[in-house]
Structures are given as structure tokens and as C-alpha cells.
């Protein structure tokens, strides 16, 4: 044989951060495309919620305190978008833990690439995945449930972008948790325990005014209320108030998540 195993013709000495992120993002997306069941299954849960809630709570639209002239599906859908983005953020953490477990990250660590590149790539590919999920959910809602809010296409797309931003910020929190816990089951449990009550103790499914007093207090300080209110205002063409708060909170979460994720990730496997 003429080829040598190691003797170099050219020696590669590593590459710039941009290429690292690009190549690593492509890698995660390729895994996603090779197994699209992940996307399909990940929209099942929000779809079930959408179906159940739109039927069970439909009569809430006739109660006092509910915005007049708004159908429940138009009220509900923005919350479902935010919820889907949040579930998806949790999956970002789970994905990172999976990479740690199957040894791919150990390989990356022995290569001349930056820790941050691996995390940014993970986060970017999850952003793409979340966008795909949100669009899919939106189509379901429009075609099957007759979602057609007053905000029109522009409002809906703005709400979608906002949900994406919220999910992205929160995704960094879960990446941080993942790089410290390093355990998928624990991640799922922590995520579920944190997010499930927060989702209900917010303006997501019923107007805050319809909640019991103590829950109203929780809902009013719950960051998810800001996100849901903002997404809803965009969809329903209501005066938009919460967008800046929602984006600020997400950016803050993202920043804190980034700092802890990089620190946690640097620790030896």
C-alpha cells in the first residue's frame, strides 16, 4: 500500500471559530434530517395540548374577563407557540447530554476547537429545529383548528419570532443545566418540574384575572406571562406592551445560561 496512515502531505492546524460553528451546526442538523421522526414526535405533545385545550376550555371565551370578540383558539395558539419553544429549549439540553454520553464530545475536546463553538453550534441547530416545529404547529392550527387572529400574517410571524427568541434564551439555561448535571433523565425531570407549573401559573391558558388570587400573584411575576402576553398581543393586534420585557428577560437568561454553560462544559468529562 502506498498511502501512509499518518505521514502528512499537508498538516492541518485547526480552523477559525466561524468554520467550527458552521461545521458543527451542519453536523447536528444532518443528524436531525437523517432522523426526522424527532421533529414529528416533538410536535405531538403540543399538538395534543392544542387539541385538548381548544375543546375543553373553549367555553372560557364566553366568560367575563375574556377579551371580547376573540375565539379561544386565537387566544390559545400564541401560548402553545411559546410552550412549544420552551419544550424545544429543554430538548437542546437533552441533546447536549446525549452527545456527552456517546463520546462525540470527548472526541471534540481532543481537537483544536473552542468549547464555545460546540455550544453555539448546538444552540443554533436547536434554533433551526424549533423554527421547524413552530411552523409545523402553526400550519396545524390554521388548517385544522381555524386559527386566524386579527394580527394577520405579520402578527403571527412576529409572535413566532418572539417565541423563537424566548426559546433560544431559555435554551441556554438548559444547556447550562445540561453541562452541570450531565444526565438526560435528570434533565427531563428538572425541566418538567420547572416548566409545567410555570406554564399553568401564567396567562397561557386562561386570562390571569380568572386565576385564584395566589396564582394571580405568581402569574404576575412569572416571566412566561410576559412572553405569552407579548406573543398574544402580536397575534391579536392588541396594543403591544410586553415584547421588550419578554426579549430583555430572554436575553438576560441567555447571557446567564451562556456563562454557566461554558463554565460547566469546561469541566472534564
Amino acid at each position: 500500500m502506498t498511502t501512509t496512515l499518518t505521514a502528512p502531505r499537508t498538516r492541518w492546524r485547526g480552523t477559525d471559530v466561524f468554520t467550527q460553528v458552521l461545521v458543527l451546526t451542519q453536523r447536528s442538523l444532518r443528524t436531525l434530517v437523517s432522523d426526522p421522526r424527532m421533529i414529528v414526535f416533538s410536535v405531538l405533545q403540543p399538538l395534543v395540548m392544542l387539541t385538548l385545550f381548544s375543546q375543553i376550555f373553549a367555553s372560557i371565551a364566553n366568560t367575563p374577563g375574556f377579551p371580547t370578540g376573540v375565539s379561544y383558539i386565537d387566544f390559545l395558539m400564541p401560548a402553545i407557540l411559546v410552550n412549544t419553544a420552551i419544550q424545544s429549549a429543554l430538548q437542546a439540553g437533552v441533546g447536549l447530554v446525549t452527545d456527552m454520553k456517546n463520546g462525540v464530545l470527548a472526541r471534540f475536546r481532543s481537537l483544536p476547537i473552542r468549547v464555545g463553538s460546540v455550544l453555539v453550534a448546538r444552540s443554533l441547530s436547536d434554533l433551526v429545529r424549533t423554527a421547524a416545529q413552530l411552523v409545523l404547529m402553526m400550519l396545524f392550527a390554521i388548517v385544522i383548528f381555524g386559527f386566524s387572529p386579527a394580527g394577520g400574517v405579520g402578527g403571527v410571524l412576529a409572535a413566532l419570532a418572539l417565541s423563537l427568541a424566548v426559546g433560544w434564551g431559555l435554551g441556554w439555561v438548559f444547556l447550562a443545566i445540561a453541562s452541570w448535571l450531565r444526565n438526560a433523565e435528570l434533565m427531563q425531570t428538572v425541566g418538567f418540574l420547572a416548566m409545567f407549573p410555570l406554564m399553568f401559573a401564567s396567562s397561557a391558558y386562561v386570562p390571569v384575572g380568572a386565576l385564584p388570587g395566589w396564582l394571580q400573584a405568581v402569574a404576575n411575576v412569572n416571566p412566561l406571562t410576559y412572553a405569552v402576553d407579548a406573543a398574544r398581543a402580536l397575534c391579536l393586534a392588541h396594543p403591544v406592551t410586553g415584547v421588550v420585557s419578554a426579549l430583555t428577560i430572554s436575553a438576560a437568561l441567555g447571557l446567564v445560561g451562556w456563562v454557566f454553560a461554558v463554565r460547566g462544559f469546561r469541566r472534564p468529562l
Partner: peptide, 26 residues
């Protein structure tokens, strides 16, 4: 480095695994 456990990306083909490493190396 070859560790005690095969550190390959199970979602990628053998070819893509090797291309990935080479790209990351520059």
C-alpha cells in the same frame, strides 16, 4: 486519541464522521 469507548457520532455515516473531523481540523 482513541479511548476505551468508540467516540463516533452515531447519527452520522462513517464517511461523514471522518469528514467532520477533517473539517474541524482545518
Amino acid at each position: 486519541l482513541t479511548g476505551q469507548f468508540a467516540a463516533v457520532d452515531e447519527g452520522l455515516s462513517g464517511l461523514d464522521n471522518l469528514v467532520l473531523i477533517a473539517r474541524l481540523l482545518g
